[in-house]
Amino acid sequence: MNYTLHHLSHTDLDGYSCQMVSAHYFDSIRFYNSNYGKEINECFNQILATIQSSESQKHVILITDLNLTMDQAKEFESKVSICDKEIMMFVLDHHKTGQECADAFEWYYLDSSRCATKITYDFFSALYGKDEKLSHYVDVVNAVDIWLEDKPEFELGKVCMGLVSGAREVNKIMFPEENSKYIFALLSKAQEYFTCKEAHIALDDAIHGIKKSFFTTSKNDTLSNLVSAYNVILLTQNRDKMQISYKEYKGILTYNIGNVSVIGNDFLTANPDLDFFMDITSKKTISLRSNGKVDVSKMAAHIANGGGHHNASGGLLSNFKDAFIYDTIKSQVMSIITNKG
């Protein structure tokens, strides 16, 4: 296959599992994940921008486990048609609400009797060959996603579903590639328990250790400390892209990072030349941490009608509109700070 595959999928077990299937069959893949609504549009535009800047001329856009509206389907088809690269696009969906699009577009395939992972596996395995281990995994996902309670794989699927929904340690907006690698690693490790006696219980008991094994490097520690160390490394590697300023001070902006006290302070310790750490959430709240150089309580009061302590404060950026691409989030926050003077 001489095409570069751009695989956009949902953010649940079924969505990520579709991507695990495509990763089994292809090497040249870029993964994108989205919930429903306008987030799909933002991700699709990101895919097109990536294609336009690529040296490769041939691309495939695969959308799985996401039900497009008629307006989205029309818009995406139009944008692909005017792109100066060779692009094939197809959707593999299992939501009945996609029926109108499936009836209107030949590239939109719908089958509500199977989960999207099974549709994807059946599609690619028919072309490139079946795989027994992968087929078993697909049956586990299918059992829980379309709620087949009488299937022996159902309880195991429930544990896998919880594993994905609880995998919040790596932020998908700031670090989408690393987030995908993390979830794929968890699900790959989970399959080692599929042949255990009472596999669903064995896997459930092992989840904490599975997570820790991903983040552990030279020495063991609490999961919280391991996750913080991992995120500090990612943030440090991306600090130039994520750097913001307030008056004469320099800091870094994160989005929904979680565990701000630990990660924020660990990051500032590792990057003493930066003055503050700011995290903004989808609820418009901000959390600020400082290494002593700037009074973030005054900063919070100035830009977010907030307050707190010299080195730990918070507030609300009421003009902030939630977004799904980090650069869009950063430009908004910088604009708000600049307008505050």
Rank of each mutant, 00 (worst) to 15 (best):
H310Q: 13
G341T: 01
M174C: 11
D221Q: 12
G15K: 01
K211P: 04
L163M: 14
T236P: 00
R168D: 12
N67Y: 01
V227N: 08
K79I: 04
K74T: 10
S17G: 04
N220E: 15
Q19F: 04
K181D: 12
Q243S: 13
M1R: 03
F277K: 10
D65H: 06
H24W: 11
E106D: 14
A312K: 12
V80M: 08
S297W: 02
D204M: 08
S331V: 06
Y230H: 15
I47H: 05
Y230G: 10
G37F: 12
A102P: 00
N319H: 08
V227P: 05
S245M: 06
F26K: 03
S22R: 00
K321Y: 08
S9G: 10
F276H: 03
S54Y: 05
R114K: 14
V333T: 03
M161T: 15
G314W: 05
I82W: 03
A167H: 10
L8I: 14
E39L: 04
S28A: 13
E132S: 13
A270P: 05
V159K: 01
A304Y: 01
S318C: 09
E153F: 01
A304R: 05
I207E: 07
D14W: 05
K181F: 06
N2M: 12
Y137I: 09
E149H: 08
A116E: 10
Y3V: 08
K321Q: 15
H24I: 00
V21C: 09
G162Q: 10
F324Q: 00
N311M: 11
L253A: 03
G37M: 11
M278C: 13
N225G: 00
D205F: 06
D27Q: 14
G308P: 07
I244N: 09
D103H: 06
D327S: 15
I329S: 00
L317I: 11
C160H: 02
G341A: 12
L163Q: 04
A323Y: 05
I82D: 06
D275F: 00
V140S: 01
K172R: 13
S113A: 14
Y137H: 15
S53I: 07
A185K: 11
I63N: 05
I183F: 05
D139C: 09
S165H: 09
K283E: 15
L134S: 05
K298A: 13
C160S: 11
